[in-house]
């Protein structure tokens, strides 16, 4: 399993386009738009901090979903077939893909954090930064599973647009791009039920010095179970088909 992990990490380093898009989008958005709301308080935080966490989550979710749904191309290329006739168990292939996906969450969190500390002098203690990074990484588990569900379930031609639309809907409606505080009430209720909002909430609460909210964890856990079930189902379906 270590060999396969090394192999995938090398590929990721050699082809950093995934990283590039998941970093450049949120950083540019932050630099351009974070000034608008700078005086407000959002999610119990000064706006520059709240927007920083939202956009870091936006980049993280983008990267994680992209890696997951790229499995669709690997499947079409016959790579998963090739691996199935080696001693590497398929469960480990899936686990490595999920891990690689979640790792792509780290660069956007760090770079948006740097942008925020330069542009708006956002200051957090070293411990808070570390806790934030850790939570924003661990919180991507449901999205890694969602990406794999798309990647194993759909052909590449369909996986790419489905991945993009899912990402756009979840990140916009979940208040990652524009804060949910500015939404009409009905949309706010919707946001609170989405995994993206609850994922960013982990970051917002930790930056404010609070523990994760039980309601938020419950929502995240429910989505994680759902996405895991769909991923397992589409994985089984993809291996049974041929």
């Amino acid at each position: 399993m270590r060999a396969y992990l090394t192999f995938e990490l090398r590929r990721l380093v050699r082809d950093p386009r995934v990283m590039f898009f998941s970093v450049i989008g949120p950083v540019a958005t932050y630099l351009i738009f974070s000034g608008w709301s700078a005086g407000d308080r959002l999610e119990g935080l000064a706006a520059p901090v709240a927007v920083m966490i939202g956009l870091a989550g936006y980049g993280a979710v983008a990267g994680v979903l992209m890696v997951g749904s790229a499995v669709s191309q690997e499947r079409a290329a016959g790579w998963l077939h090739q691996l199935r006739v080696t001693p590497l168990p398929s469960g480990q292939v899936v686990a490595v893909k999920a891990l690689i996906g979640s790792i792509t969450a780290v660069p956007p969190v760090i770079t948006v954090g740097i942008a925020a500390s330069i542009q708006h002098h956002v200051e957090l203690s070293a411990g808070r930064w570390l806790a934030l990074l850790l939570l924003m990484w661990l919180g991507t588990v449901p999205f890694a599973l969602l990406g794999l569900a798309i990647g194993y379930g759909l052909s590449p031609q369909i996986a790419v647009p489905v991945n993009f639309l899912t990402f756009l809907a979840l990140s916009v409606l979940g208040g990652l791009l524009a804060p949910a505080t500015y939404f009409p009430e009905a949309l706010q209720h919707l946001a609170h039920a989405l995994p993206t909002y609850r994922y960013a909430e982990l970051g917002w609460r930790s930056a404010a010095g609070h523990l994760p909210a039980p309601a938020g964890l419950a929502v995240l856990a429910a989505w994680t179970v759902l996405f895991a079930a769909v991923a397992a189902w589409s994985y089984r379906r993809s291996t049974a088909r041929r």
Binding site: R14, D15, W79, H81, T86
Partner: peptide
């Protein structure tokens, strides 16, 4: 397969981009 006694070149198998 698990014991590594078998290997194959398959018609529909390919590699993933980015690897050497």
């Amino acid at each position: 397969v698990r014991a590594g006694r078998v290997a194959a070149m398959l018609q529909d198998a390919g590699f993933v981009p980015g690897a050497t």
